[in-house]
Design a protein around this nucleic acid. Structure first.
Lengths: 245, 245
DNA sequence: TGGCGCGAAAATGTCAGACAATTAAATATA
DNA sequence: TATATTTAATTGTCTGACATTTTCGCGCCA
């Protein structure tokens, strides 16, 4: 079968779209093998390099995977949560860094979403998630921890909190929101006092989650949100004074 | 400069990663022009088709755009909210459809996130967003509307609700959650009674948002969540009976 | 002097054909 | 029967060429 293409845009983009649509609309199912590159080239009436460019586009979105060898080829890939997390994080991080998103905006979004998880987390938290949260709190209390490590630990803590809600779709959505904040948080210099305050709130949150008190967890998260906001605004002001427009 | 590559994986994947890292880490800024394909080929010591495959991978993620012609080339692309929405939606939709996510899980995630927006929406809603919500409610009350159109209108209504929170980062995050639900919702056959109930709740939500009553909006959203859940469970049961495993 | 057309140059887009590398199945061999 | 070898299919990569698009500058003419 020869499939018609216009010559308005890149052929490889059109071919990629045609295959992507087939996958999204369910005309191709998971693990189904696509025709070989040579066959696709014949079908779309283009050369093999052009087909390959199209396939690479799809591979970049984790829509297909390729195998070499005799019974190799391109297969429709089951999009795993891990892959989806990764794409989410990349996209969210770039979106924030490239669009001059205000610290307040990102912070508000992140804590609004995180508070949505708190009630579920309070109900369903497993010992595992609680242990992770406690371990990260302990790490954060270590003196001599660099600001970067402190932030990284903060991210791990919050992801454990989100994962405690035991809803993979929520975890997927939140991955971007939590991780993309890290570059912004990394701009903050954490004083000993501010670390102490954060560790205190983290502990309060973990306690509330442990005893299953959703309202208390929510209240503490709110407080943490407000505190983070003031820290961030301070850091942003300092930056602004150093390099005025 | 010659950049070394291993021969463990695809060269094009390695090249794409090298460039992607440069963009993410800020070593290349928005609108900066990449070296020409020939120059990249020389730098990485590969052929031009290989470089092109790498560039197509990046283009698929909207990280670069290309221009033909004399002063053309590949440029670092400012990731717009629109592009990010699109990727979000594609990824979220596939994630749900390919991983046999239960209706309950998706529904819970969506409404949890949406309720996070409600308080902000109640504070900040613009006449524009309210008008969109009212218009969609009106459309939903039309008799003879197909189930698909009803669902599409539902999505528009909820996106207006989310956008009313006036936080583009939140809107971005929620785009996937709201849109990805549509295929699942499309499986539901809406009776006249259920449409009436939904329109009623939508109206109650819009009213609460309009008068700025966050708690009332939240309560109505909760009720809508619960109602949607029962509708969905009914539909899933019917499907299960029709085609038992 | 000022606009207009036209060609040169630079870059991406596409093609054709070849060879390398990898993998699984079929076949031959001990 | 178990193992080694061949073979075929397929993706990965390279080379070289040509097509197309776009900008720049030059010469021409009013």
């Amino acid at each position: 079968m020869k499939t018609e293409l216009t010559n308005q845009t890149d052929l490889s983009a059109q071919i990629a779209k045609a295959i992507r649509d087939a996958i999204i609309e369910g005309r191709m199912i998971v693990d189904e093998r696509l025709p070989s590159e040579a066959e696709l080239a014949a079908e779309f009436n283009v050369s093999r390099p052009t087909v390959r460019e199209a396939l690479k586009r799809l591979a970049a979105q984790s829509l297909i995977r390729t195998q070499r060898g005799a019974h190799g080829g391109a297969f429709v890939n089951r999009l795993s949560y891990e892959e989806a997390y990764g794409q989410q994080i990349t996209t969210a991080t770039l979106l924030l860094s490239m669009n001059a998103v205000r610290f307040e905006t990102a912070c508000e979004a992140r804590y609004a979403l995180e508070r949505a998880c708190a009630p579920l987390a309070a109900t369903r938290r497993s010992p595992d998630h609680l242990a992770t949260m406690r371990a990260e709190i302990h790490r954060q209390a270590q003196p001599g921890l660099s600001d970067e490590s402190f932030c990284a630990s903060d991210v791990t803590f919050h992801r454990a909190l989100v994962d405690a809600a035991d809803n993979p779709v929520l975890s997927y959505q939140l991955a971007g929101a939590v991780e993309a904040m890290q570059p912004l948080m990394n701009m903050i210099t954490f004083t000993e006092r501010s670390r102490e305050a954060i560790v205190g709130l983290h502990t309060a949150i973990a306690d509330a989650i442990e005893i299953g008190d959703a309202a208390l967890a929510d209240a503490n998260l709110s407080e943490l949100a407000a505190y983070t906001l003031t820290l961030g605004q301070g850091a942003m002001e300092k930056r602004a004074r150093k390099s005025p427009a």
